[in-house]
Design a protein around this nucleic acid. Structure first.
Lengths: 333, 333
DNA sequence: CTGTTAGCGCCTTCAG
DNA sequence: CTGAAGGCGCTAACAG
């Protein structure tokens, strides 16, 4: 014997009006006399009535919910981005349906399908790990989309991206390392991420700048501390000659530092390390990490704003760009 | 001119059957011949049909969605707990509606209301900041609830809690500090959290163990690095005599360490610091942080399991307990 | 094995 | 200012 939900009809009956009048009241519409309105409000309060968003969604064809697709909620970078998204959604009275893919493409695909079935009004897609063609097709199936950290055709979705005119952070890091005298630079890049510079580009720049290159100094990693640790450990065992490593992000760089320290390297004397994102851990770590600061919260907030603007009926997609600031700390002075 | 959603009816028409037959197919029900089923499956594929969860929810009175109420998604502790919850939900094909309260009680209240309107099948409530009576009333309005880190009547909800027979972690930390020779121990506890020991209890234990006590050595803090930094800074300025500080959690302890270092204290020589949670940062920080490890992922996963069990029709609530492991590191050897 | 009918709770439209 | 009718997309219950 389940307790049944209180409905508009129940409220109407108690208040002695038709359900339509109640509907008008809960939607703040005009056309209800002040005392009927007050009476209905009282009944609502007294009964503890809550409008069913389900029913409303069905008839209005609108769920007041946005989907949030992220690779890993435990990555502090994404957590901060999510906070920006969540805050904007909250302001505009939107709900957030969380779709955490655990860096797993199969799960990402399934999550997209879930979001379609949930009929969310739009999706914020953060750092998708899917190939372009597949991602674009999936986006096309959504009512609206806002993409973070992934170039996407302007006619397909809004996006928040790193300024394409600014140099890639990994490459900036490499330049910095070479300037400060490093000769043999490893690169633990983020596999499947649009943030990391392509290995060829990385090599070209390093070579141009007069430092050594070697294809086996460059390895892909998942964007986690553990993965960074593991990959860097292997890299350093195989190539003890390295005197610097560019990490794809802070977590990977921090894992790299740990591996290096365990292998007896002193940082930065024997090995310099750089990261990216400037998460709190980068500051707190020892030695503190040289990295790039990105406006994480604002990136999320902007993505959400662009999405909500589309949902509100704007037909023009928009791409917003941000830049990263180089932060020099102890790990690569 | 919006593109309209493809419905059961559309599929039925193309396949030349009634919508019920299609319904049976998408719900994997028996009573459809193999070739009709296959034909319908083909049409679904070809049309790219996705069942509307909204409509299904309305008629079934079930949303296949759980609400997730957390104080702060950027707190690594909660992020890890959330991952446990999300994974279990995903396994059971449940969606997660995120309600991040930003440590703000007013927002928490509003989020509860949102979750009611969304008609989620149940809620996982993580570290609520609401007073007992209010929280309990709000829980009672939900279809099902599973509570983390907050004692709750067994007839009201399931819960995942620290073993009540194990000594509180802050008090264990204090004992450890006293054993290792500290005399004047400050306490930056988590305000409004059921995790932190009450100041009176803390004082009683410290006094009993033969160390000094002083009411102005104990201050509440929000559970963030920034708050911990600020509170500890003030505390250390006001009370330079302190030779140890027990932090409510790792973030607060890490903020405390930063404040201490900026004020010229050496850690652990001049000041010992302890935390709680054992987030990654505690290990990476310098000096590394003495703390308590809690099974964060499992806490979340268990809370979700308990909730889904209730949703599945189990009427018995259940409370599950976990324990924390003391991890001694450099900050308080 | 397949189809028909009747709602789920709400909003839109149109009458009073 | 208020109400009645119709339908959103789907499933349950019952017919055939």
């Amino acid at each position: 014997m389940k307790k049944k939900r209180i409905t508009l009809e129940d409220v109407a009956q108690v208040a002695g009006v038709s359900h339509m009048t109640v509907s008008r009241v809960i939607n703040n519409q005009t056309g209800v006399s002040d005392d009927t309105r007050q009476r209905i409000l009282d009944v609502i309060e007294q009964l503890g009535y809550r409008p069913s968003r389900i029913a409303r969604s069905l008839v209005m064809d609108k769920t007041f919910t946005i989907g949030l697709l992220v690779p890993d909620i435990t990555n502090p970078y994404f957590a901060e981005v999510m906070r920006g998204i969540e805050d904007v959604a909250w302001e505009k009275d939107y709900h957030v349906l969380l779709a955490n893919t655990n860096e797993n493409p199969a799960r990402e695909r399934a999550m997209f399908k879930n979001l379609e079935e949930a009929a969310v009004d739009g999706v914020v897609i953060c750092s998708s790990r899917l190939p372009d063609d597949e991602l674009f097709a999936l986006i096309r199936r959504q009512r609206a989309a806002s993409v973070i950290n992934r170039p996407v055709p302007l006619e397909l979705a809004s996006a928040v991206l790193i300024d394409p005119h600014s140099e890639n952070r990994n490459i900036r890091a490499a330049r910095h390392l070479i300037r400060s005298g490093r000769k043999r630079i490893g690169y633990v890049y983020l596999a499947r991420s649009a943030i990391s510079a392509a290995v060829e580009d990385f090599m070209a720049v390093v070579q141009n700048a007069g430092a050594a290159v070697n294809p086996s100094w460059y390895r892909g990693s998942k964007p986690t501390w553990e993965a960074g640790y593991k990959v860097a450990h292997e890299l350093l065992v195989d190539h003890p000659e390295l005197d610097a490593i560019v990490g794809g992000n802070d977590l990977v760089a921090l894992g790299t530092m740990r591996a290096a320290i365990e292998l007896g390297r002193r940082i930065p004397d024997d090995l310099a390390v750089t990261g990216g994102d400037d998460i709190l851990m980068a500051r707190v770590a020892h030695p503190s990490l040289t990295t790039f600061r990105s406006p994480k919260y604002e990136v999320g907030a902007n993505a959400a704003r662009l999405l909500l603007r589309q949902i509100a009926g704007d037909t023009e997609y928009e791409h917003v760009f941000y830049t990263e600031t180089f932060i020099v700390r102890e790990s690569a002075p």
